[in-house]
Amino acid sequence: MERSVIDLWVGIFVALGIAALLFLALKAGNVDSIIKSEGYLVSAEFDNIGGLKAKAPVKSAGVIVGRVDNVSFSNQSLRAVVKLNLDKQFQFPKDSSASILTSGLLGDQFVGIDPGGALENLQDGDRVRITQSAIVLEKVIGQFLYGKMSEKNGD
């Protein structure tokens, strides 16, 4: 085959390959995940985090405002410490509260932030004071059954 024809075909091949990669990155993948936007770290202590894992979304009013950076256990307070990586463009008042919620009945767990009313905003390294733990289904069912039983015994 002629050299120029081969050159053309290889050019088409490489262009197709790059186009496929761009398609994967832009259409199939999450464009935001390519450019890591600047964030700030905020920590929150929970009595029980249920099944929360690193990289779980942090939502406020249903909008994803950040990701869980990591989950650890504090020896001092004997509670779970969750580091939240929040997007710089979203600012929350200092007295906002964090709770661990579940999407749907069996869905993944995420952290919900309810904004407070303070004038100052949360800064990098701050701690969210008001937290609400994950609802553990077994505990709820256990309490419900226990309540029912004590009700019957009372009769």
Partner: peptide
């Protein structure tokens, strides 16, 4: 050099 391009084309076509 061809293989990554082929794999990307394969995935894109699959999607």
């Amino acid at each position: 050099l061809s293989m990554p391009l082929l794999a990307a084309i394969f995935s894109a076509m699959g999607i």
